[in-house]
Each structure stands twice: as structure tokens, then as C-alpha cells.
Design a binder for these strands. Structure first.
Length: 353
DNA sequence: CACTCGTGGTA
DNA sequence: TTACCAAGAGT
């Protein structure tokens, strides 16, 4: 048998560090426990571009509501969207539900073990496929997320900016994955990135890889990985229409399946653009409008948003101008609706007066 | 490949 | 306040 290379030495060092420092997380199997692929998958979807802290409560809620993938697959999509409301990136919730149904229909309720098969399921991309294959099934796969990109960029002092450096990073990450304990190794890499090899001010003094980290040795570590500059975000504006019926119910509308906040509920609003012209012509119905003072502000990933609120009361509900997916919701039921955060801000803005 | 797609925390 | 960032995927 060939002598083991430097990669296996480094893998062993990191696993030893992990055994002593692993974080305890709700979705993570304790030492000796068998990983539950459903919990691994659910957590990985929720953790996409989302902090551990934000995910914890949602993860607990989901496993309480739906303990198995079959339970989740059997739930109405709207219930899933309601439970996901506030977590963001709502395409994940729709793909989560679609994926659960496929796992039941195509795989008898058991997640496939292969990275390739996992990659073909909705919402599972290169990172998540590798993570599930390694963590849930022990396959020798790298799970290359933002943490791993940072760690690998630093130990090899890769100065090529992202995303151009992705192929090299993936290659170097895969070379480090040990024959055994690939799942622990994947989680160790992420723990290292989250607790020591942090974006700002990395703590190289206690890093298990400090000795041979090219980034630390050259002094480049804190400035890595380099990234291509991103364009600045524009501002969009709109008007939301808060319409109350005589019995106190409020008019809500479901957004289109695709696009921003797809499938979620909203307080009916105009188009969102730089300048809104003739808001009253875009209202769901004709009414005497009262403009609420103040603004609802919200920042999305790629634009800032300023929403003003117009209010009106109506006697009947048979005068809607279009055949949009409207629903009258009682005031006390609004909190339970699938409202994204920006729309909850609208509700709070109206109710505070 | 560049862009779209949320939210909350931090310096 | 602004900017960046966090276990990315889909188009």
C-alpha cells in the first residue's frame, strides 16, 4: 500500500479537532447515532444562504409538524409555505415540498444514497447533494459551501477571485476527503469555517491547520477569498392597498408561483418599480383611498424597497377588478397566513395606528 | 454565466 | 448608514 500523502495527514488533524470541538446542533447526529437522511436533507435546504441561528426554530417546527418525508409530502403546499414564512428564499419551500413528493413517489419514501440521484431532485444542487451523500450516507464526497471555499482559498492562498476559482477549490476540497468519516469531515470543514477560519479576523492561533496554511504564512488569509465586485442595488417603490370589509376581514392575494416571493400571500399592491404611476388604477377595486403616513422599508438581496400604504373600506366583496387569487382573511388569522416579512411589516405598519 | 431570489446579524 | 455576509439553487 502506498504511503499516505499530506492530504490524509491534514484530514486526520481536522477530524481530531472536530472530535474535540464539534458543535451540538439540532439536526446533527450525536456520536454513535445513525444520521436520519430526512433531517439531514431538511436542515441542508434550510441552511442554504441562511444562518444556523435563524434555522434552529424552523427546523424544530418542521420536524414537529412533519416527522418524516412522507408526512411532509402529504401536507398541502400552503401549509408548508405558512411554516416557512419569514425564513426567506421561498423557492426553497416549494422545491422542498416537490422533492418530498418525488422521494415518496420515485423512491418509496427513502432518499437515494448516490450524489447523482440526489442532484436530480428539486432544490438539491452540487453542494447539498455532496452534503447529504457524505453526512447521511458516508459517501466520499466534498460539500463545498461558502465556508469550504474560504478555508480552501486560504490554506492554498488562492488569489483568483470567486467564482473563477471554484473549479480549483472543488478539486482541492475533494482531495482532502478521507476514505472514512466523510460526513464528519464535511461538518468539520464547516465548523472550522464558522468558528475559526471566519470571514473577518480569522483566529489562526488556534487553527488545527495553521502550520501549513499558505494564507496564514503569506499574511493573505484575512483578505481571502477574493471576490468579483458586485453591482449596487437599486430602489423600487410601490403602493399596497389595505382593504377592510364591513366584517373586518382584510383582502389578501396570492403571488404568482414563480418569481419574487413566489406562491406567498401579499397585501395587494401595484407593480414594484422606480416610479409608480396611477396607483389607483392598479388597485384591486375602486374606493375612497386614505393614504397612511410613513413608509414601509425593506431590503431584498438585489434591491431596496419603499412601500406606501393606502387604506379603504368596502361594503361588498363582489367588485374586484381582476381574477387574481384573492382571499378575505379575518384579522386574527393574518398571522397564520403565508406572509413574507415585508408583508408582515405592512400589517404592523397598519395596525400600529 | 450573470442574474434572480429573503432575511437578520455584524462591524 | 452602508456593506458584507450566511451549510446555494434555478434559470
Amino acid at each position: 500500500m502506498a504511503r499516505k500523502g499530506p492530504e490524509s495527514t491534514r484530514s486526520a488533524q481536522l477530524l481530531a479537532w472536530y472530535d474535540a470541538n464539534a458543535r451540538v446542533l439540532p439536526w446533527r447526529a450525536r456520536p454513535g447515532e445513525t444520521a436520519d437522511p430526512y433531517r439531514v436533507w431538511l436542515s441542508e435546504i434550510m441552511l442554504q444562504q441562511t444562518t444556523v441561528q435563524a434555522v434552529k426554530a424552523y427546523f424544530e417546527k418542521f420536524v414537529a409538524l412533519w416527522p418524516t418525508v412522507s408526512d411532509l409530502a402529504a401536507a398541502p403546499l400552503d401549509d408548508v409555505l405558512k411554516a416557512w414564512a419569514g425564513l426567506g428564499y421561498y423557492a426553497r419551500a416549494r422545491n422542498l415540498h416537490a422533492c418530498a413528493k418525488q422521494v415518496v413517489m420515485r423512491f418509496g419514501g427513502q432518499f437515494p444514497e448516490g450524489e447523482e440521484a440526489l442532484r436530480g431532485l428539486p432544490g438539491i444542487g452540487p453542494y447539498t447533494a455532496g452534503a447529504i451523500a457524505a453526512i447521511a450516507f458516508g459517501g466520499r464526497h466534498a460539500a463545498v459551501d461558502g465556508n469550504v471555499e474560504r478555508v480552501i482559498s486560504r490554506i492554498h492562498a488562492i488569489e483568483t477571485p470567486l467564482p473563477d476559482s471554484k473549479p480549483e477549490i472543488r478539486e482541492r476540497a475533494q482531495a482532502l476527503v478521507p476514505e472514512a468519516r466523510a460526513g464528519d469531515f464535511a461538518q468539520a470543514m464547516m465548523d472550522l469555517g464558522a468558528t475559526i477560519c471566519t470571514p473577518r479576523d480569522p483566529n489562526c492561533l488556534i487553527c488545527p491547520w495553521a502550520e501549513h496554511c499558505r494564507g496564514r504564512i503569506t499574511g493573505l488569509a484575512p483578505s481571502l477569498p477574493r471576490k468579483k465586485p458586485k453591482k449596487q442595488v437599486p430602489t423600487r417603490r410601490g403602493v399596497a392597498f389595505w382593504i377592510e370589509r364591513a366584517d373586518g376581514a382584510v383582502l389578501l392575494r396570492r403571488r404568482p408561483e414563480k418569481g419574487l416571493l413566489g406562491g406567498m400571500m401579499e397585501v395587494p399592491s401595484t407593480v414594484w418599480s422606480e416610479a409608480v404611476t396611477k396607483p389607483e388604477a392598479q388597485a384591486p377595486l375602486s374606493a375612497e383611498w386614505r393614504k397612511l403616513p410613513g413608509l414601509v422599508e425593506h431590503t431584498f438581496t438585489h434591491f431596496h424597497f419603499e412601500l406606501t400604504v393606502w387604506m379603504a373600506e368596502t361594503i361588498t366583496d363582489g367588485e374586484l377588478r381582476d381574477d387574481g387569487d384573492y382571499r378575505w382573511t379575518k384579522r386574527e388569522d393574518i398571522d397564520g397566513e403565508a406572509l413574507p416579512t415585508v408583508m408582515r411589516k405592512v400589517v404592523a405598519h397598519v395596525l400600529k395606528d
